[in-house]
């Protein structure tokens, strides 16, 4: 079977990520049989309560990637205003092109075919450092982050330690 556009582009990205890995990020397809299903590891950014943690996540790509964005889901517990309790990540770069019907996001922040896995993961890293509480995915986390920052940080640190088995 010849490989289609999405698969070829993902191979290209995988090649690029292995040859020139960005700091704090590892990503690749889980198995040879399904290039549309990746797993990645993100380091918690320094200077944030997530520091020291390593967060596994899965990326699922649609058949018409890169015209449509993948979805990203943390596999462990991530207490964050922009991460649903299920682990699903909610940031503008992962939202399909076009204008947000709720006008929270500008079209310029949303997915475009020129984006890549690397850019998604870098955006997620910066999201961990700077949550966007305008359209929270986890209301409890957003409220706590806004109103009781120290409690939020303590809770995140505890869960990071727990995830490392400390």
């Amino acid at each position: 079977m010849s490989i289609n556009v999405a698969q070829r582009r993902l191979l290209q990205e995988y090649r690029s990520l292995t040859n020139n890995p960005p700091e704090g990020i590892t990503a690749g397809p889980i198995s040879e049989d399904d290039l549309l299903h990746w797993e990645c590891l993100i380091q918690g950014p320094e200077g944030t309560p997530f520091e020291g943690g390593v967060f596994p996540a899965e990326l699922k790509f649609p058949n018409d990637y890169p015209h449509m964005p993948p979805s990203m889901k943390f596999l462990g517990d991530v207490f964050h205003p922009n991460v649903y309790p299920s682990g699903l990540v909610c940031i503008s770069i992962l939202h399909p092109p076009g204008d947000d019907p709720n006008h929270y996001e500008k079209a310029s922040e949303r997915w475009s075919p020129i984006q890549s896995v690397e850019k998604i993961l870098l955006s997620v890293m910066s999201m961990l450092a700077e949550p966007n509480d305008e359209s929270p995915a986890n209301v409890e986390a957003a409220k706590m982050w806004r109103e009781r920052r120290s409690e939020y940080e303590a809770r995140v640190k505890t869960s990071v330690r727990a995830s490392l088995g400390l």
Partner: peptide
């Protein structure tokens, strides 16, 4: 499916110049 093992190695990329 051999796709991955064959093609992944052969896909030329701009990062080939690194190193």
């Amino acid at each position: 499916m051999q796709v991955f093992s064959d093609e992944a190695v052969n896909v030329p990329d701009s990062t080939d110049w690194l190193g």
